[in-house]
C-alpha cells in the first residue's frame, strides 16, 4: 500500500483511487484491532465489565460494540429459562455440530406472528455451549422506540452484509439469520412448514466471503406457538408495521387475559435439529461471487431444511407433546 512510503517522498496516488482500493482481507490483523476478546464462558460473566467484551478502564457498563450486553443477557436467561424448559420444553438434536469456536452462520426457518424461534435458539446455544449468538434482523427493529434498545442489548444486529462479515470473520462469533424474513412470519397457519424464498442468497455470499461454514437449523413447533389465522393489511399500514395478524392466541387468551394474552404463546413442543455444516470451497474475502452459484447454494440450504422439517413432522405425534 502507498501509505508506507518514506517521509518526504510524495506519493502519486490520488485520493479517490486510494479510496476505491478495498482493504486487503487480513483477518489476523483486523481481529486484533477490533479489540473484542471472544467470550470464553458465559456462565461466569454475570457482573458488568467482567471478562466480557471490553477491558477499557473508563467504561461503566458492559455493552459491546454491537450493543449486546452480557449482563442483560444473563438476566434475560434467568427469566427465559422456565419458558425454555417447561413451556416449550425445547429439545436439541445434533448440538455437537455447532463449533465451539470460530465464526459460523446459523440459518434457520422462521415462524410465528411474533417469532419465538430467534430468542429460543440464542438462549439454547448460550445455555448449552456457552457461546454468544448475534441475531441478524431487519432494519425495522431499529426504528421502534424501546424495542430497539432491548433488541440490541439482547444481541440483535441489523442484517447489513458488513455487520455479518465482521461478526463472523473479525470477531469469530456466531451469527443467526432467517433468510425468509417476514415472508415466513406473516404466513398464515394453513401455510405452516412451507419454506418461503431464501432472500436473494445474500447469506450464502456472506458466509463465503467470511470463510465461515453455514449451519442449517430445522425448527419444529414455532409455527404452532403463535399461528396467524388471517392478516389485516389496513391496520398494518396504519401502524406502520410489516403485517398485522389476527392470531389464535388473541382469540384464545385475549378474552381472559386482555391484550397481555396477545403475547402469550401456545405451549407447543419445540424441537431443533442441527443439520450438517456446509463448508464452501471458495476463496474468502472476495467482493462478489458468481450469482448462479450463490443462488444454487442458497436453494440447496433451503431444500436441506425443508427435507429435515418433513422428516421431523413425519415423526411428530402431537404439536404439544412432541
Amino acid at each position: 500500500m502507498a501509505i508506507d512510503k518514506a517521509p518526504g517522498k510524495p506519493s502519486k496516488t490520488p485520493l479517490n483511487k486510494l479510496e476505491a482500493q478495498a482493504l486487503s482481507p487480513d483477518p489476523e490483523g483486523s481481529r486484533e484491532e477490533t479489540g473484542l476478546v471472544p467470550v470464553q464462558s458465559l456462565q461466569d460473566t454475570t457482573a458488568p465489565g467482567d471478562g466480557s467484551a471490553s477491558v477499557d478502564q473508563d467504561r461503566l457498563g458492559d455493552v459491546d460494540e454491537w450493543g449486546r450486553s452480557e449482563h442483560m443477557r444473563a438476566i434475560m436467561r434467568q427469566l427465559m429459562d422456565p419458558f425454555y424448559n417447561h413451556w416449550f420444553r425445547v429439545e436439541w438434536e445434533g448440538l455437537e455440530k455447532i463449533p465451539r469456536e470460530g465464526g459460523a452462520l446459523l440459518v434457520a426457518n422462521h415462524a410465528g406472528a411474533i417469532p419465538p424461534d430467534a430468542p429460543i435458539i440464542i438462549h439454547g446455544i448460550e445455555k448449552e455451549l456457552g457461546r454468544p449468538v448475534y441475531g441478524l434482523a431487519d432494519y425495522w427493529f431499529r426504528t421502534i422506540p424501546f424495542v430497539n434498545v432491548m433488541w440490541s442489548r439482547m444481541g440483535g444486529v441489523t442484517a447489513h452484509p458488513d455487520n455479518a462479515l465482521r461478526i463472523m470473520r473479525d470477531n469469530r462469533q456466531l451469527a443467526l439469520v432467517f433468510p425468509e424474513g417476514t415472508k415466513a412470519t406473516s404466513k398464515t397457519f394453513s401455510d405452516r412448514y412451507r419454506l418461503r424464498r431464501f432472500g436473494r442468497g445474500g447469506f450464502v455470499e456472506i458466509a463465503m466471503r467470511a470463510g465461515a461454514p453455514i449451519i442449517p437449523l430445522a425448527v419444529v413447533g414455532a409455527e404452532e406457538a403463535m399461528p396467524i389465522l388471517f392478516r389485516v393489511p389496513g391496520i398494518a399500514s396504519m401502524l406502520n408495521l410489516p403485517y398485522f395478524p389476527i392470531t389464535g392466541n388473541m382469540l384464545a387468551f385475549g378474552p381472559v387475559l386482555g391484550p397481555l394474552g396477545w403475547f402469550l404463546y401456545f405451549p407447543s413442543k419445540i424441537k431443533i435439529k442441527v443439520l450438517d455444516p456446509i463448508h464452501y470451497d471458495v476463496e474468502p474475502g472476495q467482493e462478489r461471487y458468481s450469482r448462479s452459484f450463490v443462488m444454487e447454494e442458497a436453494e440447496q440450504v433451503r431444500t436441506m431444511i425443508q427435507d429435515a422439517l418433513y422428516d421431523m413432522l413425519r415423526d411428530r405425534k402431537s404439536a404439544f407433546l412432541g
Binding site: A20, A22, L23, G67, T143, H160, P161, D162
Partner: peptide, 12 residues
C-alpha cells in the same frame, strides 16, 4: 440512519 452498518469503512 437505521440502515447503517455498525461500522463504516472509508469506502462504505
Amino acid at each position: 440512519t437505521e440502515n447503517d452498518p455498525v461500522w463504516f469503512r472509508e469506502e462504505t
